[in-house]
Simulated assay, not measured.
Amino acid sequence: MIGPAAILFTIFVVYPVLYSLGFSFTKFQGFGSPEFTGFGNYVALWNDPFFWRSLLNTAIILIVSLAVLIPGAFALALLLRRKIAAGGALRALVFGPAIIAPILIGLIWVFILDPKIGLLNRVLAAFGIAPVQWIGGDTLTPYAIAIVFIWSSVGFAMTIFYAGLQVLPDDVIEASSLDGATGSQQVRHIVIPLMRETFAIVTILMITNVFKIFELVYMLTGGGPVHRSETLVSYMYFLTFTNQQYGLGMALAVIITVLGGIVSIGYLALSRERKAAA
C-alpha cells in the first residue's frame, strides 16, 4: 500500500538529496565534467564570512519566530474557539495571509518597511521621528524578516491549534470547572499538556519553513547590501545560480538539510523527554 508513495518519495526527495550530496564534493560550474575536490567546498564555506552571516540571520529569524509565533497562534486559537460574533470571518481573516504567495507577501511588505518609500517610516515622520533602516541594514533586517514570516504563518499555525482544541475531551474540562479551576489554570494544566503533540507538529513545521525562507529575502532586500541580509537558502541560491558555483551551493544545501534535521530531531527528543517526565 505504501509502495507508490515510497517510489514518489524516493524519486523526488531521496534521489535529489543524494545527488546534491555527491555534487557537494565537486567543483562544477554547469559545463564540463565535475572535478572531485573532497571536502574543499565545506572548508570554503567554513572560511566564508557570508556563510556565517547567513547562518546568524537564519538563527535570529528562527528564534524570534518560534518565540512569538507559537504562543501567539495558540492564543489566537483559544480566543477564536470562544463563541464570539463573526468568529468564522475572523478565522478566515487571520488565515488569509497563509494562502498568499510568499513573493507577493514580500512585495506587500516592501511598501511598508522600505526605508525610503515605506509606509512605516512615513508614519514615523508624521510624528517627527527619524526614519529607521528596517530592512537592508546591519541590525534590524533579520528581525523584520521574522515579523513578515510571523504575519504570513500565524494563520496556518492557528488553524492547527484550533483543530487540536476542537478534539479535546469536554468532560475533562467540565470536571476541572466543577473543581473550581480558573480559565488560566485549565489552559496551563489541562489544555497545554493534552496538546503536546499539536505543539510539536506546529513547531516542526515552523522550523522547516524558516529554513526554507527565500522569497521574502529576495523581495525585501535581495540579500543585500553586500550579503548582510542573506539567509541560508538565499545565499545558497546566490552561490548556485548567480555565481554558478554548483558544488559550493550543493554543499550549503547539504548543511541546511543537516541543520534543519538536527534542530527538528532535537526538539522532538526534548519534547518526548518532557512528556515522559510528566
Rank of each mutant, 00 (worst) to 15 (best):
A5I: 14
I7G: 05
P16F: 07
Y19W: 13
L21G: 12
F25N: 07
T26P: 01
G30A: 06
S33M: 13
E35L: 02
F39W: 10
G40W: 00
Y42P: 00
V43T: 14
F50I: 11
F51N: 03
W52C: 09
L55V: 00
I60P: 01
L62G: 12
S65I: 08
V68F: 00
I70A: 13
A73R: 02
A73G: 04
F74I: 01
A75T: 00
L90H: 01
A92W: 07
P97N: 07
I100P: 04
A101L: 00
I105F: 04
W109S: 06
P115M: 00
K116H: 04
L120M: 05
L124H: 08
L124G: 09
P131H: 10
P131R: 09
V132P: 03
G136C: 07
T139K: 14
L140H: 02
T141D: 10
P142M: 10
I145F: 04
F149T: 04
F149Q: 06
S153N: 15
V154P: 06
A157R: 05
I160W: 11
F161C: 02
Y162V: 04
L165P: 02
D170G: 14
E174R: 13
E174Y: 04
S176L: 09
I190Y: 14
I192S: 09
R196Q: 15
T198S: 09
F199G: 03
F199I: 08
I204A: 06
I207L: 13
T208D: 02
N209T: 04
V210M: 15
F211M: 15
I213R: 06
E215C: 09
G222R: 05
G223I: 03
G223E: 02
E230I: 01
L232R: 05
F241Y: 08
A251K: 01
L252E: 15
L259F: 13
G261C: 07
V263Q: 15
